[in-house]
């Protein structure tokens, strides 16, 4: 269970990062959420063999990362954690799609490899944008933004409670697994059947806890709706952020400036 042990501090990092102050942190969470969604839609809407047009989109996470003063190493670590999922999605492309698409010198590159690279790039862009969003906003503010943007209340309440009790659940699992490790010797006691009963135990405890939490909520007048008192205000900088990025992202998506940009950069470089 070393994995549980080590991933929990990472989660609390998230809270620490969200408490910091920066121009990005001060933006209205709804604005950040909408901009991130637009960014993700733009990135995923490209053709599957598209690679060069995607590259300029890296400007968004990079600029936000710098403005929000988030540690890049933290984002990279989190990205690496999610890499296996993206690999699973893309790894078969090179096997199925073997038509040659590119020549670099004498090297022939198949369409499969290009689309694989495209998937990995999209993954890196979208996931890092989402990570920056959460790390610069905080989970509860994000839930509030979702609620204000009209996401059905039950989903928002689920998300809020999920985040609140994630820590309690991990603690509980950790205690169970320590108790098992304490009395397991030479691999005995670590069998799958034991894991199954451990998980069953965890489920039962969770159900019990859910019951107790519900009682506590009822005692304080819970009627199915969680109301957060915080006020959100959209200011001039919020409008500027949203319109600015919308213009940039849409331009990158539809005007395909990548070749022109490339040539411009090429001209700037000393030949």
């Amino acid at each position: 269970m070393a994995r549980i042990d080590s991933s929990l501090p990472d989660l609390s990092d998230l809270d620490g990062l969200a408490c910091r102050d920066s121009p990005i942190h001060r933006l209205d969470p709804r604005i950040k959420l909408l901009t991130t969604l637009l960014f993700i839609v733009c990135v995923v809407s490209f053709d599957k063999h598209q690679l060069s047009a995607l590259l300029p989109f890296a400007a968004y996470p990079v600029v936000l990362l710098i403005l929000a003063r988030l540690p890049p190493a933290w984002i990279l670590r989190k990205l690496l954690l999610a890499v296996p999922f993206a690999l699973c999605v893309g790894i078969f492309n090179p096997l199925f799609d073997r038509t040659t698409l590119l020549h670099i010198g004498s090297l022939e590159i198949s369409g499969g490899w290009v689309s694989f690279a495209s998937i990995m790039l999209r993954f890196a862009l979208t996931v890092s944008a989402a990570l920056i969003l959460v790390a610069s906003t905080g989970f509860d503010a994000l839930c509030l933004a979702l609620a204000r943007l009209g996401v059905p209340r039950p989903f928002v309440v689920q998300l809020l409670l999920l985040y609140r009790y994630l820590f309690v659940l991990v603690d509980e699992a950790l205690r169970l697994s320590r108790a098992r490790a304490q009395r397991s010797f030479a691999g005995r006691g670590m069998e799958l059947t034991v894991v199954a009963s451990l998980l069953a135990q965890l489920l039962l405890r969770t159900l019990d806890r859910a019951q107790r939490i519900y009682l506590a909520m009822q005692c304080r007048g819970f009627d199915g709706e969680v109301r957060l008192l915080r006020r959100l205000r959209i200011g001039a900088s919020d409008v500027l952020f949203l319109t600015g990025w919308t213009a940039i992202l849409l331009a990158l998506r539809f005007l395909a400036p990548a070749p022109t940009l490339g040539q411009a950069i090429g001209r700037l470089l000393p030949s």
């Binding site: 839930c143 409670l161 609140r164 939490i213 009682l215």
Partner: peptide, 9 residues
């Protein structure tokens, strides 16, 4: 258990 009672962010 206060954890059962403190459920808000």
């Amino acid at each position: 258990n206060p954890d059962d009672q403190l459920f808000m962010p």
